[in-house]
Amino acid sequence: MTTMTTAQDPIQHWDTEPHHHAEGASTNIGFWIYLMSDCLMFAVLFAVFGVLGQSFAAGPGPKALFDLELVALNTAFLLLSSITFGFAMLAMFAGNKRGTLGWLAVTLLFGLAFLMVEIYEFYHLIHLGAGPQRSAFLSSFFALVGTHGLHVGFGSIWLVTLMVQISRKGLIPANMRRMTCLSMFWHFLDVIWIGVFTFVYLLGMI
């Protein structure tokens, strides 16, 4: 009988441990670490582009292919989507469900506009015969810009699911946590896009 009490002792010590974290307390730092790992993946793609960006294989270079006005339009879409997501976060912290959903919808529209322009650009390049198989420069270009575009695409899917969750359950703590994560993801993609338009488009056109 005494063995049972001694066996339960460690369990009781475990339960009375003072550092009890609330559910989701570590979500922010965990998601931030994921974003940092994502950042490393983009760094590798940038490095590949830096190494292969001049290997045209006698094919077309950036000046023959890129349209800076289109890139400026895309940059504007992504920047606008960043600030509208910020407004969605502010509406969420104010407890305004309709405002949150409205700003998220505007963000989604800008995200989709960005994707449409990028898909048009890729289609245009492939139509010109400047697809990813044309040269090492174009392979690394499609890998880098395409990976960023895929992130925006999956971010948009996440945005839609979050809008459904918020409209059904309201601004519950779990949804607020998800909003915080998606806002970090969305702003992070805008930061990556700064690197893309600088190193791929602007430096290529100088």
Partner: peptide, 9 residues
């Protein structure tokens, strides 16, 4: 749920 959200807010 809304009460919880308001409390959390």
């Amino acid at each position: 749920a809304q009460d919880h959200a308001a409390h959390h807010d």
